[in-house]
Amino acid sequence: MSPNPSIERRRRWLSVLAKAPSTRLQALWQALGATPSYVVLRRPEIGLVMVQGRISGTGAPFCTGEMTVTRAAVRLDGGEMGFGYVGGRDTRHAETVAAIDALGQRADWTERLEAELVAPLAREAEARHRLIAARAAATKVDFFTVAREAGT
């Protein structure tokens, strides 16, 4: 069974928006101009979640510690509900993610939000990852063993 494309898009959007630098997200959000108003269903709340890891990436799970998160929920006048969860304590970031999530459920806003908000943030995130990888690669050391033949 293939996943629903709108669900996959929403997952990707929420991931990109939650990881985006808050100041950059706010700048792009403001650049959209007039957006539909929304009602806050759940004002931004700050809490903790337990973070789990796995031994060797696939082994037994273990708790690595707690992480601060902020969540918010909003509803547009048309009834679309949006949810925002972000790492850290930035309440404005969580509320903005929730508003974009709700607005992204409207067919007349989907393409605009993708082009003007999500795609630029995704490209910037990819560029940051490439830069980090390049910096890490510059420090790579290759260790090897030279085997000598007996008697030489």
Score class of each variant (00 low, 15 high):
1 M>S: 14
1 M>L: 12
2 S>E: 10
4 N>I: 08
5 P>S: 07
6 S>N: 11
7 I>H: 09
11 R>N: 02
15 S>K: 04
15 S>Q: 05
17 L>T: 08
20 A>T: 05
21 P>T: 12
22 S>I: 05
22 S>C: 12
23 T>G: 13
23 T>F: 06
25 L>C: 12
27 A>I: 07
28 L>G: 08
29 W>Y: 15
31 A>W: 01
33 G>I: 10
34 A>I: 08
40 V>W: 00
42 R>I: 10
46 I>K: 10
47 G>N: 05
47 G>E: 02
47 G>Y: 03
47 G>S: 13
48 L>I: 03
48 L>N: 07
50 M>K: 07
54 R>K: 10
54 R>W: 02
54 R>P: 01
61 P>F: 03
61 P>E: 03
63 C>K: 03
66 E>G: 12
68 T>R: 11
69 V>S: 02
69 V>Q: 05
71 R>F: 02
71 R>V: 15
72 A>M: 04
73 A>F: 00
74 V>M: 04
75 R>W: 00
76 L>I: 06
77 D>N: 09
79 G>Q: 07
82 G>Q: 08
84 G>N: 10
85 Y>E: 09
86 V>R: 06
88 G>R: 06
89 R>V: 14
92 R>H: 10
94 A>I: 07
94 A>W: 03
96 T>V: 15
98 A>S: 10
98 A>M: 07
99 A>G: 06
100 I>F: 12
102 A>T: 11
106 R>F: 01
107 A>F: 01
108 D>T: 11
109 W>H: 14
110 T>E: 09
110 T>P: 00
110 T>R: 12
112 R>K: 10
113 L>S: 05
113 L>E: 08
116 E>Y: 00
120 P>F: 01
121 L>T: 02
121 L>P: 01
123 R>D: 10
123 R>H: 07
125 A>S: 11
129 H>V: 12
130 R>N: 10
131 L>T: 14
132 I>M: 11
135 R>D: 15
137 A>E: 13
139 T>L: 15
141 V>P: 02
143 F>I: 13
143 F>N: 11
146 V>I: 14
147 A>F: 03
149 E>P: 05
151 G>C: 05
